[in-house]
Design a protein around this nucleic acid. Structure first.
Length: 270
DNA sequence: ACATTGACCTGAGAGC
DNA sequence: TGCTCTCAGGTCAATG
């Protein structure tokens, strides 16, 4: 779930619920989620403070505290947030639970504990330390940027789209959705895409990400023409009914429609 | 450079 | 019911 659109939806959710309430208690139930923060610093930075604003870079969510620190949340493969009042609504697998002075709670949910919770001085530090590329939804991420980054790539397009060091935000599901909408086979070599095709891909990428955000990143709300709800074995192409194919790309399962996106590329060389 | 694999950690679902 | 196996939306490190 938590790729750029999902994280953007979570950012807006937190923004509209948990801002400007004093944090009165912090309960971290899985210390392994802390990658570069001492447990004491977490509560020390949060208790008595309020969330002031939010930022997102790729799949990372940053929340500014009025004390000057930033809370970092990364959602791994299964992370989620829930803001609630009634303790009976405390969700399963809540790994971090914040209590606010208004009686509400914010739960960070991570069944697989593959996410990250940290407190840092500023987002730029983490972006630099992790070597993240530019966020693909940043206004500065232009067609020219996109073409320039891909210009030196020799590998497959799906791998490039998912490389957070190259460009940040796209994961396995949305890379497949973007390539499906652009009618490009996931194993296509970047160098085999001409300028025209790259421009189409760029426009498609923006369209898919914007649409997904508009749909709250809920697969069932996506347009009927979207592949994402069929992103599993036995799924069928929403446009032609062909059974989707699964291939390994960069260690991940890529799903695509062999009818609309072609068979394995390569061989004839043009 | 790039591809591949395994590790991290846990749960869901299928098959027996 | 219980066991085993495979897969899962991410990231990182090690190895060809």
């Amino acid at each position: 779930m938590p790729e750029l659109p999902d994280v953007e939806v979570l950012r807006r959710y937190l923004q509209s619920t948990a801002l400007h309430h004093e944090i009165t208690d912090v309960d971290l139930r899985a210390e392994a989620l802390l990658e570069e923060t001492q447990p004491e610093r977490l509560s020390g930075a949060l208790v008595g403070q309020q969330f002031e604003s939010t930022r997102r870079h790729g799949k990372y969510l940053f929340v500014a505290l009025d004390g000057g620190d930033w809370l970092v949340l990364h959602f791994g493969m299964t992370g989620d947030l829930k803001y609630f009042e009634d303790p009976d609504q405390d969700p399963e697998y809540d790994r971090l639970l914040l209590q606010f002075a208004n009686g509400y709670h914010l739960a960070y949910i991570a069944p697989r504990k593959l996410g990250e919770v940290d407190v840092i001085d500023k987002p730029e530090d983490l972006i630099q330390d992790r070597g993240l590329g530019p966020d693909v939804k940043d206004p500065d991420f232009t067609l020219e940027t996109f073409k320039q980054l891909l210009g030196s790539r020799r590998g497959m397009i799906k791998t490039a789209l998912m490389d957070q060091q190259l460009m940040a935000g796209i994961g396995n599901v949305y890379s497949d959705e973007i390539l499906f909408q652009a009618r490009i086979h996931p194993r296509t070599k970047v160098k085999d895409l001409d300028g025209q095709k790259l421009e189409e891909l760029y426009q498609t990428m923006n369209g898919v990400l914007d649409t997904a955000i508009d749909c709250q990143a809920i697969p069932g709300r996506l347009p009927d023409s979207y592949l994402t709800p069929q992103h599993h074995q036995g799924g069928v192409c929403p446009l032609c009914g062909e059974t989707v194919q699964r291939v390994k790309v960069g260690g991940r399962s890529a799903y695509y429609c062999p009818n609309r996106q072609g068979q394995e590329p390569g061989g004839d060389g043009g």
